[in-house]
Design a binder for these strands. Structure first.
Lengths: 302, 302
DNA sequence: TCCAATCCATGCATATATGCATATCAAACC
DNA sequence: GGTTTGATATGCATATATGCATGGATTGGA
């Protein structure tokens, strides 16, 4: 090391840099303030302060919102790098933390969150009352590397090498509808009988259609007049006789108001993976929750 | 961008991270406080706070000083990355600044600082009173990329691609001593006559010896009983008759108490480069000083 | 063994930053 | 055109962080 290393170049207020980063990424002071959990005037003053401190203009105040100046854009690139490093700091710190107390954030599909997790969480809460649990129920995949969640329950194998993943098992999914609806479309017993049926779909992509057609059906977009990204909403539609929906077998078979469509049709199968960031695997709290989830999920899906 | 990007992982106090970084790099709270220009208790409390905030122990308080824990070492790596990014932020901000007011930090060898810069700085101060100048006179090369200085006067061509360099000219250096000393060693007129002379050296490396020997001398470490990294100190030794020293010709020839040793010996030559960080070239203040330095240096060295 | 130097911790007065409530403003909508 | 909505600024009371002075502890050396 130098006799006297020079730190004046990093001797600006780093929190103000963070304020700038989040404001630029979120697009407004208000949104950034919400995201960071601080008041909007605070963030506004921090951005003003860093502009003064560095002697540059980061945002043009145009109308009711801020737009980045070219200077701001230039700086944003470097501040982003700070943010990514800060993220790694946070990850490493969490991983090193040996305290069992604290929060764990779990993300799962809404179906898993609603039907699978409640009894498991009950166990966990009893066993470790010091651990708080936050559930993010979403069908969009959260980015574990940004630590949007600590543990994810996924239906695909993650590819990033810095994630650790454990396959719990394969689960099956089948088509369900109410007896009323099935009668309305003539109690079909062959795939051909479903050619004009209404299905509840997930989105406009053909992924589900293709999967079902490989099982012998012959569906098109026309068969999916009702869409929802929320699988619980889909399931309510099915239970109320709107149409045919797909659901995990163990959930569908336990729902008395519906029954299988084409009971002998081969089910769809998909895996259940438990995923966490590798850095976090050294955290005692993390391991505790991860291992308990793995054990209980395997039991629940048996 | 996600619907609601999650920033909680970077929502720790970044200034505390900086406090940890500098403390770890400097080795003590006191040194870090000096380096950052804050009080030592402030830094101590910031380090305490980040330990609490992240729930980890960064330093072991052993005796009167701090030593990194393995956890601290692990985190330091990531915090270093934050620091490097912060450094780039600072560089970019400076480069984008169009204000002519402010400070410019120039590093040069002590000889250049003492003999070359004074008249140039006088000009600069007259021409641009709003620009403050800080001179780092050292014979160790400052790291421009860390912004230990804004402009450097160097005697070698920098290799890093993110630096801009302009060669001013080649200058020559010769051997000087007092008439008294030369008489004492028998007024040598050939390289052989210097075989037992005392030279003032820079350090224990053979670089200078090798350079002189290529001119026909035949010196060894024995000829360098007096060493100083400070060339001005060397020069005082020479002027007081301690031995023979090397000095830029234009400085040595204007010093009346010394004269050339072996006047017909071919001089050593080395280039003078003006160097700055590429990011800074867009700064108005920077360009002003850089261009003036280039012009005046060329004139002064003519 | 004592002394001096150097470092970290603590108390307290002060400076700084934050949050809340509110004013102000611009754009979209009826 | 007025109204609503969602944004940025400002005033003020409060919370938080900082600096200074000081105490306590450890190391290295006379």
């Amino acid at each position: 090391m130098h006799i006297c290393m020079d730190w004046k170049s990093i001797n600006f207020d780093w929190n103000r840099a963070r304020a700038f980063l989040v404001t630029a990424e979120e697009g407004s002071l208000s949104a950034a303030a919400r995201a960071l959990g601080v008041a909007q005037p605070t963030l506004g003053r921090q951005v003003d302060a860093i502009e003064k401190e560095l002697g540059i203009i980061l945002f043009d105040r145009v109308g009711r919102n801020l737009v980045l100046t070219p200077t701001g854009l230039e700086l944003l690139e470097h501040v982003r790098a700070m943010g990514e490093a800060a993220n790694r700091v946070s990850l490493a710190a969490f991983g090193q933390s040996q305290s069992i107390e604290g929060t764990i954030c779990i993300t799962a599909s809404d179906v898993h969150a609603a039907f699978l997790l409640p009894p498991i969480l009950k166990n966990l809460r009893q066993q470790e009352p010091g651990i708080d649990i936050e559930i993010i129920a979403t069908n969009t995949t959260s980015d574990l590397r940004r630590r949007e969640a600590d543990i994810a329950i996924r239906s695909f194998r993650p590819t990033q090498p810095d994630l650790i993943a454990r396959k719990i098992k394969d689960v099956s999914a089948r088509l369900y509808a109410t007896p009323d609806y099935l009668q309305k479309i003539g109690n079909p017993t062959t795939p051909y009988g479903l050619k004009d049926a209404d299905f509840i779909g997930f989105d406009h992509t053909d992924a589900l259609i293709n999967a079902l057609n490989t099982l012998g059906l012959n569906l098109t977009q026309r068969n999916f007049p009702v869409l929802s990204e929320n699988l619980l909403v889909q399931w309510e539609f099915v239970k109320q006789g709107i149409g045919i929906g797909i659901m995990q077998s163990d959930v569908g078979d336990h729902e008395s108001v519906v029954r299988r469509v084409l009971p002998d049709l081969e089910p769809l199968t998909f895996p259940v993976w438990l995923v966490a960031h590798r850095e976090l695997s050294t955290s005692r709290r993390m391991r505790m929750v991860f291992d308990l989830l793995a054990k209980e999920l395997a039991k629940a899906l048996a």
